[in-house]
Design a protein around this nucleic acid. Structure first.
Lengths: 340, 340
DNA sequence: TATTTGTACGCAAACGTTTGCGGTAACGTT
DNA sequence: AACGTTACCGCAAACGTTTGCGTACAAATA
């Protein structure tokens, strides 16, 4: 447990130079001659000098730390985004602090505050669907760059990196229409969920543009979508007189719940009812029949979020306010299309 | 982008007190009268004072940051551990920096070094299975407390938090024996994988204690276990003359690959061949038949790792060197036991 | 030769916090 | 009244780094 940290002072003493010269030599300052630069850098390497990040961050109000807040790290798609974030950040010399909001609004703002305490250079956030008011979040923007990803909000003026959810959902529904489905149900979340609302918008537009009537009875909203909710809502959908011939579940896990209960009732998939999910989670290839779904480029989303973040960190004057849309990719599998 | 940070100095000026008094008042120092304490604390709350962690950490060589290194954040079980770590850490006032080693030994030691640069108070690590030499890791221990979790090593003298993998595997094999299986294959990883070796040890002990001969031909090792490898090795196992009547796959995803190829060959599960996995991943309940497996308490593992870490941080004299074993839990499902 | 320019380096302040030490006043004790 | 004790509080240093400014010397210019 020894702490034999080599500081600038130690290097200075060793070389009979001043601390400032050492500092400048290591930072490649033009005022320093090449000969001393190399001399200093060699000794620094030899003595395994590592700058004290805290002194540095303390001095120049820069920490090279990016804060990340996500609702649930356990969620597979989220974890792929995080992978992209970690990768890109470490490539650019940044560290990442991750916090979970657990879909708890109070905890979320608390997280934001402690992030500020830690003087993070920027905050990447996927806002919880339980977020009702954005005042606390808006206050953050005054202090530090903020970029939203995956779960965004038009109430917050900042850059956002998202999937083209509306269009992807549109493509999914159009695919269902193309295979002859005419009565397409949707299982979605309530209106506070960004992802759900965007996908729902794509659903509505696809139906309208293909002149398919919209029936409120097969538009199902739940507060907390899940596999279990997928099961329950399928039971509900099967109980109405005019059953759907396709179900778009806003989420892969819900779609899997749908498949499981349809199988329980021996309903043929996709002939009687086709199913489509969203996310291309691992499970979607394990369930039988394999689930048609939309693949989301998680790692790429994380990486681009970090890129734009560093952009904003290094140019603090122009705060970005653009929305970057990454394309989702429809993956057709057995739950909508049976290879003959 | 305004930085109107309220510092101790500002509070001091406002109240006509010295900076030291403010500092002590906020830290509940006995030298300060109750009246000024409340006065200071009220103003601090009103002016939304947040201590500059970098000044603090800089001053007292304590960062309240715990570094975490995992092979792959995307791995479900790993993400549950991380959830536990984040939870417990934030409860105790610590922040967490996460890095991925991506099963790359060079990157792993690099991560360790940058963690040290950031002056983390301690490092939690799940060592990559590609780790061949532990010299770099041993050097870390001199500087900062280290605790290993999930993937451990007896070559590193530090506290370790693991699952009772050997015993859990033993229980799994015993369960197979109890349902009448006599020729039990195992699909495992090479000898550098901690988890694999422990589970293999349990496998061997169970067979020995039940007087079942050990046959090298049905002991299969692969370098990088996965669903695909599960499939390929099942093909291999089915090609030998004396087929196994049960397969223990070291991993749920491999076990799922086993199930999928057995189904392809119309082999009855569990009557002809029973299957058992390890981890109780989400997938294990989605595959049909549902997979018998061992549930690992991921969140609890993360939380206890953090607890012991904080223990070591706050008592730097007694470096821990104990191994904490958390109990895995055999979950019996259809892949080994058909309810009649 | 006198003046300017440029090069290479040092001095010292500053960042916000903690903390050992010293000091003052009020109080209690003989 | 003199002394010791206690309760509060301020001074100033320290942590390691960066950086504006000053300065010494050499080279270039007039």
């Amino acid at each position: 447990m020894k702490k034999e940290t080599t500081s600038l002072k130690k290097l200075a003493q060793e070389l009979n130079l001043s601390v400032s010269t050492i500092s400048r030599a290591l930072n490649d300052h033009p005022d320093i001659s090449d000969s001393t630069k190399t001399k200093v850098q060699k000794l620094a390497a030899k003595l395994n000098y590592v700058p004290n990040i805290f002194a540095k961050g303390f001095r120049q109000h820069k920490t090279n730390i990016i804060g990340v807040i996500v609702p649930n790290i356990t969620h597979y798609f989220t974890s792929t985004i995080l992978k992209g974030i970690l990768e890109e950040a470490s490539l650019k010399g940044y560290r990442v602090i991750i916090s979970e909001s657990n879909n708890d609004a109070v905890k979320q703002t608390e997280m934001l505050k402690t992030m500020l305490q830690f003087n993070v250079d920027g905050i990447l956030m996927s806002i919880s669907k339980v977020t009702r008011q954005v005042d606390d979040i808006l206050r953050i923007i005054d202090n530090v760059p903020l970029i939203l990803f995956d779960k965004a909000s038009n109430k917050i003026p900042c850059s956002q990196v998202v999937i083209n959810e509306e269009e992807s959902a549109y493509n999914a529904i159009e695919h269902l229409i193309n295979i002859g489905k005419k009565r397409i149900a949707i299982i979605k979340e309530n209106e506070y969920s960004y992802n759900s609302e965007r996908r729902y918008a794509g659903y509505l537009r696809a139906l309208k543009e293909h002149n398919i009537p919209i029936d409120e009875k097969i538009i199902i909203s739940v507060d907390d979508i899940s596999l279990r909710q997928g099961k329950r809502m399928t039971n509900l959908l099967l109980s109405i007189k005019n059953k759907p011939d396709a179900i778009f579940a806003i989420t892969d896990s819900a779609a899997i719940g749908v498949i499981q209960t349809l199988k329980k009732f021996n309903i043929k998939i996709p002939e009687e009812i086709a199913i489509i999910g969203f996310s291309n989670s691992i499970n979607s290839t394990i369930i039988e029949p394999m689930l048609t779904t939309i693949d989301q480029p998680g790692e790429r989303m994380g990486a681009t979020a970090v890129k734009y973040m560093i952009e904003e960190i290094e140019n603090p004057n122009d705060i970005g306010n653009k929305t970057i849309e990454l394309k989702g990719n429809l993956i057709i599998r057995d739950s909508t299309f049976k290879a003959s």
